[in-house]
Amino acid sequence: MEPLLVVKNLKKYFPLKRGIWFGEGAEVRAVDGVSFEVRRGETMGLVGESGCGKSTMARLILRLLEPTAGEVYFGKASVFETNKEEMRQLRRRMQIVFQDPYSSLDPRMPVDEIVGEGLTIHRLARGKEKTDRVVDLLEMVGLGREHMGRYPHEFSGGQRQRIGIARALAVGPEFLIADEPVSALDVSIQAQIINLFEDLQEQLGLTYLFIAHDLRVVKHISDRVAVMYLGQIVELADSDELYRNPLHPYTQALLSAIPEVDPQSKRQRIFLEGDPPSPVQIPSGCRFHPRCPKRFDRCDQEEPVLREVSAGHWVSCHLY
C-alpha cells in the first residue's frame, strides 16, 4: 500500500538553557532520529510514556514546530519545504485532535464558530450553507443543532472532545492525528469516543496517527503500533503481532505493566528499575540499557538500530 505519510530521520532538540553570555547550553532531545510510514487508510498507533517525544512528533508532522533535522512527506509534498500558501493548502488535508478537552477549545467562542472556523479560513462555505455544514458536522460527531450557540464550558469533557473532532473534520482532511484524545476522559466516555473515531474512519476513509500512553486503547484502535522510548522508536509491528510477540524488553515490560482486568490472571510481571532517564542526559549505547533486565556488555557501548527482524516487525535491540 502506498504511504500517505513518510517520516524520515526526524529530530527535534530544544535548547534547555542558553548560556547567559555565550557557550553551548544543554539540550532536550525530544525526538532523536525517528523514521516511519503511515499507509493510506490505516491507523498507526504511537505509544510511549510521558516525555518520550510522542507529542513533539505530532507537532512536528503538522509543522507547529520546525525540526532540528529530518523530513516529513505528506503525499507528494515535503512538509518542511512548502511555502506559506502550499502549507495552508496542506493544512486542509491533515488535522489534529488534542488531549485536553479544556484548553483545546477557545473559551470565548460559541460552538458553531469553533466548528465553522475552518470553513471560513479556507472559504469553503458561508452564510446558510456554512450553518448547514456545521450542523452536519455536529451530527456526525453525535451532537446537534441545539448545541450551536453554546460555549465550551457548558459541555462535558466527552462532548468537548466531539466538538474538537468536528472542528478538525470541517476542512475535509484525509489524515488525522489524535494526540491522547481519550486520556482525560472517564472510562465510560472513552469507549464512546473511541467508537466515534472508528465510525468516522469507516465513513470518511480517514488515516489516523493515534498517540496515547494507554496500551489497551492503542491496541484496540490501531492496525500497526510503534513504541517510543526517549525520542526513538524501539519497536514497530502489526498491532496483534506486537502484543502477541513483543521483542524489545521495553515493550515487554510495558505490556506486562498493564493491569489485567481479570483477578484470576497471574502473569509474569517484569518490573523495570528506576524511572525513564531525562531526555537531557541520554544514556550511552542503547538508551534503554540502564533499566533493561536483559542488558549485556554490548548494550552500553553500541547504539542499536531499528531493523526488520521478521516481515513488518521492526525492533531496535542487540538481542535480535
Partner: peptide
C-alpha cells in the same frame, strides 16, 4: 467499555455506556 488486550480476535466495537457522566 474497556478495550481488551487479548489478540487474535477481529476488532470488535467497544460497548460504551451511552450518555453523559
Amino acid at each position: 467499555s474497556l478495550p481488551r488486550l487479548e489478540t487474535g480476535k477481529a476488532r470488535r466495537r467497544l460497548r460504551a455506556i451511552p450518555g453523559l457522566v
